[in-house]
Write a protein that binds this DNA or RNA. Structure first.
Lengths: 139, 139
DNA sequence: AGTTATTTGTCCGTATGTATA
DNA sequence: ATATACATACGGACAAATAAC
C-alpha cells in the first residue's frame, strides 16, 4: 500500500488512502476510524505519521477528533440557506482559535463574514450557504 | 513568558504570543520569523513544540512556510471584488490537497464556490471578496 | 560551478497527561 | 478503578530545499 520511495510522504499517502476509503463507502459519515494505535500497526508506521495524516484530514474538514475518543468521519451538517442582503460584501477566512471556540466551530471550517452598511454577521461555512438576491427581490 | 502549569499547551501559548508580536508590529507582513531552532532556544521548548505552534499559524493563514526558508508573516494579497450573479448559491469549504495545489493556494485559505444554473466558479478566499448584486443591477 | 551551512520536512522512539469508555 | 485513546512534550536522525560562501 505505502511506497517509501515514491517521494510522497507517508502521512500524505495515508491521508489519501483514508479519503479513498471514505469515498469507497468503507468509512461512512459518522462512523469511527480505527484508533491511531491500530492504524499505526496496520500501515506499519509510527503513531506520529498517523497523527500527521489525521491532522491533514481535520484541516480539510473530513474528520472530527476529540480526546479520548476515536476520530469520526465528519457528517455534513444541515445547511441553512441565508439570503444575503443587496450590495453586501462577503469575505471568508479561517477563524482564530478563540473565534473557533466562541462560535463552536470544528477544525477545518472557514468563517464567512457578511458585511453591509448596518451590520456584520458571522457564519460557520459548514452550516450555511449564501444565496444572492434574485432580480425580483425587494430591498 | 510560558506557563507550564496554566493548563494551556505550550504550542498554543507560543502561537498566541507570536500573533501578539505580529499585532504589535514586531513581526510585520512579509518579514521573516526566527528559525525554528532559534525559537526553540528562545522559548526553551523542543523544536516539536515550535512546529506545532507554526502549524496553528499556518492553518489560520497567518504565516507562510516553504522548506529550506524561514517562515514569513503572510501579506494580505490584493483583494479582487467579484460581483456575484443573482440567485447564486455560495458555499465555502477547505480545499483538498490536490485542489490547493491545482489552484495555487496557500495553506489555511478557504475555497469559495459560486454556483448558478449555468456555471460553477472557484475562488481562493484570500484573493476575492464577493459583492452581492444591488437592487438596480440588471440581470 | 560547487561546497558548506542553514532551515524546514519527515519519521522514528519514548514518556506522561487527560479525557473517554 | 481499569483500560483505551488522543494530546502534549521531549529527544534523535536523516532527507531535501534553500541560502551563503
Amino acid at each position: 500500500m505505502l511506497d517509501r520511495r515514491s517521494g510522497i510522504s507517508l502521512y500524505r499517502q495515508i491521508a489519501h488512502d483514508l479519503l479513498d476509503r471514505m469515498q469507497g463507502g468503507e468509512l461512512t459519515p459518522g462512523s469511527e476510524l480505527p484508533s491511531e494505535n491500530t492504524l499505526s500497526l496496520d500501515y506499519g508506521v509510527s503513531r506520529d505519521v498517523i497523527r500527521d495524516a489525521m491532522a491533514v484530514l481535520r484541516a480539510e474538514g473530513a474528520i472530527s477528533t476529540t480526546r479520548g475518543r476515536r476520530s469520526t468521519v465528519r457528517k455534513a451538517p444541515e445547511v441553512r440557506e441565508i439570503l444575503a442582503p443587496q450590495a453586501a460584501r462577503i469575505t471568508v477566512r479561517m477563524p482564530t482559535y478563540e473565534e473557533r471556540h466562541r462560535l463552536d466551530m470544528l477544525e477545518g471550517v472557514p468563517l464567512i463574514v457578511v458585511h453591509t452598511d448596518e451590520l456584520e454577521s458571522y457564519h460557520p461555512a459548514d452550516r450555511v450557504a449564501i444565496i444572492t438576491p434574485p432580480a425580483d427581490e425587494p430591498a
